[in-house]
Design a protein around this nucleic acid. Structure first.
Length: 220
DNA sequence: CTCTCGATGTTCT
DNA sequence: GAACATCGAGAGG
């Protein structure tokens, strides 16, 4: 039974929603039988036309239109010509904002997720390789453009409440992949993730401008 | 382990 | 034309 978060959950400040989305459970129902479930462990906030890393920085266009719509719906788009990204629209209608769901801890339907990721059903795919990044998550959960504008109360895709993660378990950092946005939007710490989780985006060398070794040390 | 590069198509300048 | 909310393969230490 879908027990989705109510629309009022999303109709709040995006930073609050992003933080509280950690620990909630993303559910994808495919056909009659398969139900994929994953615990959200990483999310990023994109807020308003003034946020120069947000797609809405270019104003309302056919692509960004869902961001201006009512909260609690999906905003799905294609990037790099091959990867889909899943967002949850937030804030009251008219204010463009959303949360990028970046990573989840697989709970159920791991075999189907591995298939979606292109792993042969023979080899045992590591669970932390299934949805540890926004494009991987979409592959694992079978999310593509057909789910753009989908109601996040189901029946195809929804998010349920989960066990809340206490503050000490949550870390923040700049948003990943926003290094070309003008300051302060490139460094503003609007990425939220579970500090100790092995299911978040793996640390990678960020495309560096001219600096040498500038590593995002976290955890501790 | 680190770093570089190419895939691939839509959107924006 | 360039950029792009990415990923994985391959080269090198």
């Amino acid at each position: 039974m879908p027990r989705p978060l109510p629309r009022s959950f999303y109709a709040r400040p995006t930073l609050t929603v992003a933080r509280e989305l950690l620990g909630c459970v993303l559910v994808r129902k495919i056909g009659a039988g398969t139900e994929l479930r994953g615990r959200i462990v990483e999310a990023e906030a994109y807020v308003g036309e003034e946020d120069k890393a947000c797609h809405a920085r270019a104003g309302r266009t056919p692509r960004t239109d869902p961001l201006y719509g009512p909260p609690g719906f999906a905003y799905v788009y294609l990037t790099y010509g091959m990867h889909y990204m899943l967002n949850a629209v937030t804030e009251p209608a008219g204010r463009p904002a959303a949360i990028l769901i970046r990573a989840a801890e697989p709970l159920r339907g791991l075999e189907s997720m591995a298939r979606g990721r292109g792993f042969s059903s023979r080899g045992a795919a590591k669970p932390q390789a299934l949805a540890s990044g926004p494009a991987k998550l979409c592959q694992a959960f079978g999310i593509d453009l057909r789910l753009n504008r989908t109601d996040l109360r189901g029946p195809d895709l929804w998010i349920e409440p989960g066990e809340p993660i206490p503050d000490p378990g949550v870390a923040v950092s700049p948003r990943i992949g926003c290094h070309t946005a003008p300051a302060p939007w490139d460094l503003i710490p609007w990425r939220f993730y579970e500090a100790e989780s092995p299911f978040v985006t793996p640390g990678r060398a960020l495309p560096r401008k001219t600096q040498g070794s500038q590593r995002a040390r976290h955890g501790e």
